[in-house]
Amino acid sequence: MDYKAIIAKYRDTTGGILEAFNAVQKELSYLPEEVIAEAARIFNIPAAEAYGVATFYSMYSVEARGKNVIRICESAPCHIAGADEVIAALERELGILMGESTVDGLFALEFTECVGQCQATPVITINGEPFFDVTAAKVPGILAKFQK
């Protein structure tokens, strides 16, 4: 769907800019400049304020990034459960470093703090879907689901 149509759906939601940004990101994976400008127009706020919102929240990116956003929890419970090994495996498997995207535009690799699935540390999420008790050995299998 066109980003203008997505944002327009939230026109009557007071304070709904986060809802609009969330919905756009589901489609585009990030918030391009024109999305921020359009949201500012629809919600009747200065563009600077809309940009301020887009840069405040860690799940938003104002720069282009891979389609499937992989986030690795680095909070203390995941940290001591071996998140570092998972990070190394993901970097190796994708050939990129944390904070980067693959050249084919398929994956982005990011840190996150706790995602609330601490019964099964270490945890990663891909497009918001959690994967549990992740080990280096499990990484290729998890990625394969998104490589199609």
Partner: peptide, 8 residues
């Protein structure tokens, strides 16, 4: 919002 690490 449940953001406190270790909480679910």
């Amino acid at each position: 919002d449940e953001g406190e690490p270790g909480t679910y």
